[in-house]
């Protein structure tokens, strides 16, 4: 069974996503900050990481993405962002191997089911 790590600083958003992913058969581990995320990853490399961009500071998510990618270059990262909405950026960010090595973005707000679909697709090798 595929293992997914959820990294987000809101206990309830984590719980919502955890419950739906678990119901679809994923093994879910959770982390509420960068420190917990590192411990979680050190305990074993998962099949996918779901990472919220905004945590304690606005850049923690970005830094963590680079860190994870460096440690496990093949590990897919799905990044959750509210950037377009928060900053009124009129375009969608694309993943960038050098600057921000994530596999895909998911714009907030989204439903936990949509997240689960996305996770399943990435793990199947699709987009």
């Amino acid at each position: 069974m595929a293992v997914v790590i959820l990294i987000d600083d809101d206990v309830d958003l984590i719980e919502a996503n955890r419950a739906v992913l678990a119901a679809r058969g994923f093994i879910v581990r959770t982390a509420l900050n960068a420190v917990e995320a590192r411990q979680c990853l050190a305990a074993g490399v998962p099949d996918l990481v779901v990472l919220d961009v905004m945590m304690e500071t606005p850049t923690v998510g970005f830094d963590l993405a680079r860190e994870i990618h460096k440690a496990a270059p093949k590990l897919p990262i799905l990044m959750l962002t509210g950037l377009r909405e928060a900053m009124d950026v009129p375009f969608q960010f694309g993943p960038d191997e050098t600057w921000l090595p994530v596999t895909q973005f998911l714009e907030k707000p989204f439903s936990s089911s949509a997240l689960a679909e996305k996770v399943a697709n990435i793990l199947k090798g699709g987009k």
Binding site: D10, D12, E15, N17, A19, V20, S111, S112, S113
Partner: peptide
Amino acid sequence: PLAAIEGFLRIISEHSAGDDPAVYNHM
């Protein structure tokens, strides 16, 4: 909080978190 509540309510209405009622009660 709005995102959290909306997320929970959607899951409850879609019944997408499995069959354990305790999970929904917690939400």
